[in-house]
Design a protein around this nucleic acid. Structure first.
Lengths: 107, 107
DNA sequence: CCTTACCGTAAGGCATGACTAACGGAAACG
DNA sequence: CGTTTCCGTTAGTCATGCCTTACGGTAAGG
């Protein structure tokens, strides 16, 4: 269940901010940390979690490391949510039908 | 940012199980706890968190309390993810364009 | 009434997580 | 080379989260 890691990663506000900051384009850890109210090692750890969830990717650029958004994690979560959504909808349909004709329940 | 609470609520596996169990129809806390490997008070606390995220709703039925799935929380998260998704896509487009013609950057 | 069933809440323990400060390694730069 | 920059990792602290046990309160049932 890869969407579990994605949900855990997205549950943290700082990680969401980092991800949204990466929407502007690939950035180094230093640039990324400058946009956040936490220290650089904290950003580094968050990036590790985001990478484990397939939400970011790294590319060493000489001395620095360039982080970019990766669609895989989000895609995974989207699929899970869509499946969940249709399950909920069908559950609602079944519930309406159950409430509409309860004669079958107590003959 | 209501999706924050939704993400935090969905980050816990037990809460996801509870929610998926509720797809089969409204259930009481006792029935719900019987499907989970944790105690009944634990389920009660999880239901509190799910309610705060607009993922479940309660309806007192005499002695017991009937919990049902609520679409609002999921809808909220879906919207957030879709907006995020399009942002990521446009960021990719901008990045491709940036990589295609870097002449403007260093004249 | 008294009992039983069902449930929410409080208190406490235990694990997990987020953050900082400090260290160490690798690349660029003189 | 020595230095500086950039970064990941570690150790340690502090807060948060999840769980259980125990308690109190309300509704049904004899």
């Amino acid at each position: 269940m890869p969407y579990g890691e994605v949900l855990s990663a997205l549950a943290d506000p700082t990680r969401r901010n980092i991800l949204e900051a990466l929407c502007a384009g690939p950035m180094t850890v230093g640039e990324l940390a400058a946009t956040q109210p936490v220290s650089r090692p904290a950003v580094s750890q968050h990036l590790k979690a985001l990478g484990a969830a397939n939400l970011v990717s790294v590319e060493p650029r000489g001395n620095r490391r360039l982080y970019s958004i990766r669609r895989d994690g989000l895609q995974e979560l989207r699929w899970y949510l869509e499946r969940f959504w249709s399950d909920v909808l069908s559950a609602y349909g079944a519930e309406i039908a159950r409430r509409a004709k309860p004669e079958k329940e107590s003959p």
